[in-house]
C-alpha cells in the first residue's frame, strides 16, 4: 500500500510540471490557433536564465523567477509581434514551418551561446526532503507541484473572472464577434502568447534546480506536453492539466511495475486508447479543437 502512495505522489509531482508546460501550449493554441513548436525552447531558455542567475549573480531560483518570468513574457510579446502575427491568416503549414524554424533557430543559438554541456543548478535545498511516516517527499518537487497547480488555478480564475480573461476566452471562441464587442484582438493575441511563454518560463524556473539543462532539454520534454495537450482536448486548460497529471502518474506506476523503459510505451497506449474512444480528448468539443480555453 505504501508503495502505491509513494508512486502516486512522485507521479503527481512530475505531472504538475508537465501540466504547467502544457497549459501555456494549449492556451496559445486555443486562442491563436497556432501550435507553437518552439514552446520547448522557451522552457530551455528559462532554465538557462535561471542557471546563469544562480551561478553568476547568486540569485536563488525562486528569486530569479521574478526576473525570468517577466523576461519570458516580454519575449513572448516580441515573438508574437515579429513572427507569429504574420502567420495568423496563413495556412497551418506556414505556421508549422515558422514555429518549427524558430525552434531550430533557438536550439542552435543556445548551442553557440551556452555549448551543449549540461548545466545544473546546485541549490542547497535541491535534494532536501522530509519524511511523513513511510513516505519521502522532496521539498523542491512538492513546491514545484504546488506552484504549478497554483499558477494553473490562477490562470483559470483570471480567464473566468477578469475582463481581460473574458476577452481572451471570447477571442478563442469567435474572433469576429470578439472584434465586434470592442476587443482589440491583436492585443489579445500578443497577451495570450506572452502568457503562454511566461507560464513555460515559470515551469523552467521550477525545473532548473531539479534537472540539468542543455540546449535540447526543452525539445525532449515538450513531447509529453504535446501528448497532454491533445489528450486534454486541444485548447482546454483543464484538460491539459488533468492529462499532464495523469501522464505523470502513469509514468510513475509503469516504471515501477513494468520497468523504466516501458513508461513512454504505457502512456502512449493509454493515449491511443483514450483517443480511440474519445477522439477529441477529455474536454474536446469540435473536431480536435476546443473553443473554450478553460
Amino acid at each position: 500500500m505504501e508503495i502505491y502512495v509513494q508512486l502516486a505522489l512522485s507521479g503527481l509531482f512530475v505531472g504538475g510540471i508537465y501540466a504547467l508546460i502544457s497549459v501555456g501550449l494549449t492556451l496559445v493554441f486555443g486562442v491563436l490557433r497556432v501550435v507553437n513548436f518552439a514552446h520547448g525552447e522557451y522552457l530551455t531558455l528559462a532554465m538557462f536564465l535561471t542557471f546563469f542567475m544562480y551561478h553568476l549573480l547568486g540569485l536563488d531560483p525562486f528569486v530569479a523567477s521574478l526576473v525570468v518570468v517577466p523576461i519570458l513574457f516580454v519575449l513572448g510579446l516580441v515573438t508574437e509581434r515579429l513572427l507569429v502575427r504574420r502567420t495568423l491568416e496563413a495556412p497551418h503549414v506556414v505556421q508549422v514551418f515558422v514555429t518549427f524554424a524558430l525552434s531550430l533557430f533557438l536550439q542552435n543559438l543556445f548551442l553557440v551561446l551556452f555549448t551543449s554541456d549540461f548545466r545544473a543548478v546546485r541549490a542547497e535545498y535541491a535534494t532536501a526532503a522530509f519524511e511523513i511516516g513511510p513516505f519521502y517527499i522532496s521539498w523542491l518537487r512538492m513546491v514545484a507541484f504546488a506552484a504549478s497547480i497554483a499558477l494553473t488555478v490562477a490562470l483559470a480564475v483570471f480567464l473566468k473572472y477578469s475582463y481581460m480573461g473574458a476577452a481572451i476566452r471570447a477571442t478563442a471562441q469567435d474572433r469576429r464577434s470578439a472584434r465586434l464587442v470592442g476587443i482589440n484582438v491583436d492585443r489579445i493575441y500578443a497577451l495570450t502568447f506572452a502568457i503562454g511563454c511566461a507560464l513555460v518560463g515559470a515551469a523552467g524556473v521550477l525545473l532548473a534546480p531539479l534537472y540539468p539543462v542543455n540546449p535540447y532539454t526543452g525539445a525532449d520534454l515538450i513531447l509529453v506536453a504535446f501528448v497532454a495537450v491533445v489528450l486534454g482536448g486541444m485548447g482546454s486548460i483543464a484538460g491539459a492539466t488533468l492529462a499532464g497529471l495523469l501522464i505523470g502518474v502513469i509514468e510513475s506506476f509503469s516504471s515501477y511495475f513494468l520497468g523504466g523503459e516501458m513508461k513512454q510505451f504505457v502512456y502512449f497506449i493509454v493515449f491511443i486508447a483514450i483517443l480511440a474512444f474519445r477522439p477529441v480528448g477529455f474536454f474536446g468539443r469540435k473536431g480536435a479543437e476546443v473553443m473554450d480555453v478553460t
Partner: peptide, 15 residues
Amino acid sequence: RLFPFMTVQENLELG
C-alpha cells in the same frame, strides 16, 4: 455569432 460556450449572462457582459 454568440460566444457559444459562454453563458447568456457572460455573453451579455462581454457586450
